[in-house]
Amino acid sequence: MDARRTLEDLWDSLEDSPLHRTAIAILSLLAIAVVLIIVLANARLISLGFMADNASFLFVPALTSLAATMISFTVGILGAIPMGLVRSFGPRLLKQRGLRAAVAAPVYGSVTSYVEAIRGTPALVQIFLVAQVSGILFPGNPDIPFWGGVLALTLNTLGYQSEVFRAGFQSVNQNQIEAAKAIGMRPRQTFAYVTLPQGIRLITLPLVNEWVALFKASALLGVIAVPELNWAASYLGSTRSHPIEAFIMVSAVYLAIIIPLSKAVGYWERTHRIPGLGTPEPGRGRRAGVRRPVPAH
């Protein structure tokens, strides 16, 4: 009986502490990875010595992947905010007559076509296309693979991020906009002080999702000779004939970057949540109904 209660208390404290839950998830993942690697090494499928000797080779490629992702993502945000605005408020302007609609129609049309084109074609195809064009425009420039790759990733993430921002802006309740108007805010102030701050809070997690997707998409840049992580794995695999080890190591690097980052943002989002804004935390109170009553002493 006492053992069961201790276990239940432990479970409750886990459920109440996002930090503990995250730590346990990461430790379990590490344990599984270690067991897997030991089993593979014992079966002589992989060589631990090779992995130890070549781990440092991945450092610069990891930085390259990170840099390409970070630059594209940041530029993407700056472009996606106005594009998301056009996507969310364009249709309303189109319904009006006269000059406004005449300006809005081509802008809304081109942004929408852009989003559909990006979302409707493979990232790999977009990367090849940008690489070909930039190779013709700047022949022989040694920086071109990297910056062409960054450009391709930026164009790609713009399409997705602008849809994330559109969703965020559209989820802001109309009564908030009306209240802003009623205290005399101009449309620009309403956007800056109400729509944007509320919208951003609603889309924090989808934005992290997009960052993760973009970071993984940066693995495609290897095909246009950008020395990023995936390229480094292929290089190690083919020149030193240890492909399995190389790709296991690279997988570990991706996980080591993505999991802490998404967990950290998730943790920040939970602890900085404003009551009443956004969706309530999933899973909370799931067990509340069956939690045993506090015994009276």
Binding site: N175, Q176, A179, I183, G184, Q198, L277
Partner: peptide, 16 residues
């Protein structure tokens, strides 16, 4: 709108 204050049925306070 700065000259005339308005109070709504559903309060419309800024949630953030």
């Amino acid at each position: 709108r700065q000259q005339v204050g308005m109070v709504f049925q559903s309060f419309n306070l800024f949630t953030h």
